[in-house]
């Protein structure tokens, strides 16, 4: 899984070439990823969409070095994913907030900072900043179980933002939330992305969410998990919620749906 040695372009953050991953299970081998080629550039907001089993989460986990590919090459910031992990190159946001119930919100956000050895003063400062960033100022002293699901998820995003990772990997972060909360968080996430200029990889199974958020939409399909289409979004960077009623938006959503259907028809 090492890089091929060649230096990727300066703006390329994640570069996958011919990536393969096969899991050995009791029911025989499962081809989770097959020949995945993808470049993610600095500042991109890339969504991965597809039915379950298409390998979108697996691909994200490969980038995070939580899975090890069985073939092809994958580099993150020009390093192997594992080196990038040790350099703390990315923050990862899971499907559930996964906050530690025995820590307050502020202490939860401090968790990565403690592990990475930031000074106490810097920890406090960063916690204050990211809490403001996700609109949770004043909630630092609360325990996770005292907050709503949406607030918990925002806290977990703050936790991923607290250290200076320039890549944010998000695995269906809003999947368990209701539609209204989700809209609100999507809007906030875009604002946050505009302000911080981070590169974001975002797994979802909602077409409107993917289209609304992304600069590029990667459509994937299962058995074996592979990329069937990569759609560049023509939408402007500035996106109010009602852009979802525009003709352009509906056009892109239509293309995504077509892509998903085509992947399905292949079987």
């Amino acid at each position: 899984m090492n890089g091929t040695g060649q230096q990727p372009e300066l703006s390329s953050v994640v570069s996958a070439k011919g990536l393969d991953l096969t899991f050995q299970t009791n029911d025989g081998p499962v081809h989770a990823l097959k020949d995945v080629n993808l470049e993610i550039n600095k500042g991109d907001f890339v969504s991965f969409i597809g039915p379950s089993g298409c390998g979108k989460t697996t691909f994200l986990r490969c980038i995070a070095a939580l899975e090890t590919p069985t073939g092809g090459s994958l580099t993150v910031n020009g390093m192997t994913p594992d080196e990038a992990r040790r350099k703390r190159a990315y923050g990862y946001v899971f499907q559930a907030a996964g906050l530690y119930p025995w820590r307050t919100i502020a202490k939860n956000i401090k968790l990565p900072l403690e592990i990475m050895g930031y000074s106490r003063q810097e920890q406090d400062e960063r916690v204050r900043n990211v809490l403001e960033l996700v609109d949770l100022a004043g909630f630092g002293g609360k325990f996770p179980w005292q907050l709503s699901g949406g607030m918990q998820q925002r806290a977990s995003i703050a936790r991923a933002l607290a250290f200076d990772a320039d890549i944010l990997l998000m695995d269906e972060p809003f999947g368990a939330l209701d539609e209204i909360v989700r809209d609100h968080l999507n809007e906030q996430l875009l604002a946050l992305w505009a302000r911080t200029g981070k590169t974001i990889g975002f797994v979802t199974h909602s077409i409107p969410e993917a289209v609304y958020l992304s600069t590029r939409i990667v459509v994937m399909s299962p058995r074996p998990g592979r990329i069937t289409d990569v759609i560049e979004s023509p939408l402007p960077k500035e996106r109010p919620l009602d852009i979802r009623d525009s003709a352009e938006f509906i056009e892109v959503a239509h293309r995504v749906r077509e892509g998903l259907r085509a992947g399905h028809a292949d079987e």
């Binding site: 070095a65 992990r85 996964g98 968790l111 403690e114 592990i115």
Partner: peptide, 23 residues
């Protein structure tokens, strides 16, 4: 998920012991 989180921080064995598993 909790263990994966510690993994993404590249936490050492004892860090994840004291911060996650023991509590």
């Amino acid at each position: 998920m909790q263990r994966d989180l510690m993994e993404t921080y590249a936490a050492s064995y004892w860090q994840s012991f004291f911060k996650l598993r023991l509590p």
